[in-house]
């Protein structure tokens, strides 16, 4: 079972939920940190890393001896990464999305595949749990290939918990797609609700069963709850706005270590998710 922990708004508590949930449940589990632009699960888990794998992608390189400056490569590139001039061809690696269109269309076989690094994947163990995270290279913008690579470590025989990036764009889709359940973490503020709605619309398109965790639940107003009831989204857990939790987080510590009663709460959260997944499976 794959549970993807997402949110529209950043800073609502995805990592807190992901890490504490992974360490609380009574089943075999792995944790994948898919927020590859700013991975942070490792700050809380202190994993021992065992392997490092680069994520590479092809970019074109032009053989000017063969090139006839016909511009077919420039015309097919949606990202403007190729400039064919009168006697030269410029390639902008950082704009290239490695779609392969230019390689296919070149009639002169003048394009050579060059490799570039997008990022890297680290695999290891955090408190006996398999832990994998990805890291985007500085200056790179292509995030989904790294997330897909992190997800290639998914073990279908155990529970997979994914810490997704915030927002609703391509990286988030890459971290949610084909999950069995999406747990949306939100906060009861106008910003939280605004971005939650965007996230819910995205999850609906992906057609994946989903539920809510309301973090800092006694702040703000009750608009998030009203919205959840109206949209029939189950609220699976509420975490109060507790100074102790804030302090634990700010030290990079785990809630379940300092407030052990939470271990059971996260187990209950997992049980509810499992019920939802089973119920969703029946209705399909």
């Amino acid at each position: 079972m794959i549970i993807s922990i997402a949110s529209g708004k950043g800073g609502t508590g995805k990592t807190t939920i992901s890490t504490n949930l992974a360490l609380s449940i009574n089943q075999k589990v792995q944790l994948l940190d898919c927020d590859v632009e700013e991975p942070n699960c490792h700050l809380f888990l202190d994993p021992v890393m065992e392997t490092l794998e680069p994520v590479i992608a092809p970019v074109p390189q032009i053989n000017l001896e063969k090139c006839t400056f016909c511009k077919k490569c420039m015309d097919i590139c949606r990202f403007g990464a190729i400039a064919v001039l009168k006697k030269d061809v410029l390639i902008f690696d950082n704009l290239c999305h490695s779609c392969g269109g230019c390689f296919e269309i070149c009639p002169e076989d003048a394009i050579i595949e060059k490799e570039r690094s997008l990022g890297e994947i680290e695999q290891g163990t955090a408190r006996e749990i398999p832990f994998i995270h990805g890291r985007l290279d500085i200056g790179q913008v292509m995030v989904p290939p790294i997330i897909k690579k992190v997800r290639s470590y998914t073990d279908p025989d155990i529970v997979t918990i994914i810490d997704a990036p915030p927002g609703t764009s391509c990286p988030v889709i890459a971290a949610m797609n084909h999950a069995d359940f999406i747990l949306l973490v939100t906060e009861p503020t106008p910003f939280g609700l605004h971005d939650l709605k965007l996230a819910v619309e995205t999850v609906k398109i992906l057609n994946i069963p989903h539920g809510l965790v309301i973090n800092r639940a006694d702040l703000g107003n009750d608009e998030v709850k009203k919205y959840a009831i109206k949209e029939r989204i189950p609220i699976l857990m509420e975490i109060p706005f507790d100074k102790k939790i804030a302090q634990i987080y700010s030290k990079g510590e785990m809630i379940i270590d300092k407030l052990p009663e939470y271990k059971e709460k996260f187990q209950i959260l997992f049980d509810k998710i499992e019920q939802q997944v089973l119920a969703g499976g029946q209705s399909k």
Binding site: M74, R78, F79, G80, A81, L85, L95
Partner: peptide
Amino acid sequence: NAFKGAGIQAAAMISD
């Protein structure tokens, strides 16, 4: 209205 690389394409056009 280009998604990306507008300046690059315009530069190539000027050169042309």
